[in-house]
Simulated assay, not measured.
Amino acid sequence: MSNPNIIIFGETGTGKSSVVNMLSDSKLAEESSAAKGCTFESKKYTVTIRGQPYNLWDTAGLNEGEGGTVSHRQAIIKLYELLRSLTDGVNLLMFVMRGPRIKEATKQNWRLFKEIICSNRVPAVIVITGLENEEVLDDWWVRNRAEFDRREICPAGQACIVAIKGKLKGDRHLFQYDYDESKKKVESLIRTASLSLAWKVERAEWFRTILRDVREEYGEALKQLVERCEMSEGEAKALAQSLKNIDDQES
C-alpha cells in the first residue's frame, strides 16, 4: 500500500519548507525567508506520524513575481504536473500562508487548486505561519475567520502555528513551546483531514473547454477562471494552453 500524498503549496516565503522540517524533526528541506524562493522542483519528503508514513511534497512558491526563481504560471504548471504524476493519487492539499495579513492572492491560489484543478474532490487545509507575536496562536483564526468566509475560503481544518524555534535562550529556544505545540497541531490536521482513499487528478479536459470558449465566445469555463480565480482573460487563456500542452504530451 502506498503512502498518503500531502501536497504543500502556497506563496513564496510562507514557510512551506519550514513546515516540512518541523514535521521531520530535521533540516530535510532548504529554507529561505527571502522573496525569491529556494524550491524550484517539487520535492518529496517522507515523515512518520504516529506510525503512519506520509509523503510530503514541497512545491515551488506561487506569486514570486518577475524577479523570482519561478514565474507564477510556471509554479502553477509544475504543481499541476506533480498532481498529474501521482498515479496513486492525492490525499490532502495543505495551503501554507503567512500571517498576520490575508493577501488577495490567497483566494486566487486556493480556488485554482482546490476548486478548479482538484474539482473540490480533495480536502484542503490551511496552515498559518509567522505568528510568533501572538500571545495565543489560535486567536488569529478567531479574529480573521470572517475574512476567509467573505472570500469563500472554507478549509477542512486549520492550524495557527510557529514554524521556527527562534533564538536559543539558555538551554531552550525562544519559541520552543509554541513550536512543539504547532507540530502536534499540523500532525493532527494531517491525520484527521486526509482522504483514506486518494483521488487521482484527472486530465484537464476542463481547460480544453476554456480554449474552445475563447474561440467561440466568453463561455462558462473561461468565466470561472476569470471570476473565481480573478485572472485576466489573457492569463486564463495562457494557463489553459499550457496545461493542455501537458496533457497532450501524455497522450
Rank of each mutant, 00 (worst) to 15 (best):
L112Q: 02
Q108S: 13
I102N: 07
W141T: 09
V122M: 01
N120I: 06
V96E: 03
T106Q: 10
R101V: 09
K103W: 03
I128K: 06
E135Y: 09
V122A: 01
N109A: 11
W110M: 05
T106D: 14
V127Q: 09
K107S: 08
V142R: 15
L137T: 04
R98D: 03
L137H: 07
Q108W: 08
S119K: 14
V127E: 08
V127I: 15
T129L: 11
N91A: 12
M97T: 06
V142I: 13
L112S: 00
S119Q: 10
D139K: 15
I117K: 01
N120A: 14
L112T: 00
W110V: 02
L93V: 01
P100S: 13
L92Y: 00
V136C: 09
R121C: 09
W141Q: 12
R121K: 13
E135I: 07
V96F: 04
S119L: 07
V142A: 15
E134M: 08
P123F: 00
L112A: 02
K114P: 00
V122L: 03
G130K: 11
Q108D: 07
W110S: 04
N120C: 15
F95R: 01
L92V: 01
K103V: 08
V136R: 12
K114Y: 02
E135M: 05
G130W: 05
E134K: 09
L131C: 06
G99D: 05
P123R: 00
E134I: 01
S119R: 12
E132Y: 10
I128A: 04
V96A: 06
A124W: 00
L137R: 07
I126K: 08
D139H: 14
L137S: 07
V125F: 05
I116P: 02
E115L: 04
L92Q: 02
P100V: 11
P100L: 09
N91S: 14
V136F: 08
K107W: 03
R111N: 15
W110L: 05
L131W: 03
K114D: 00
F95I: 01
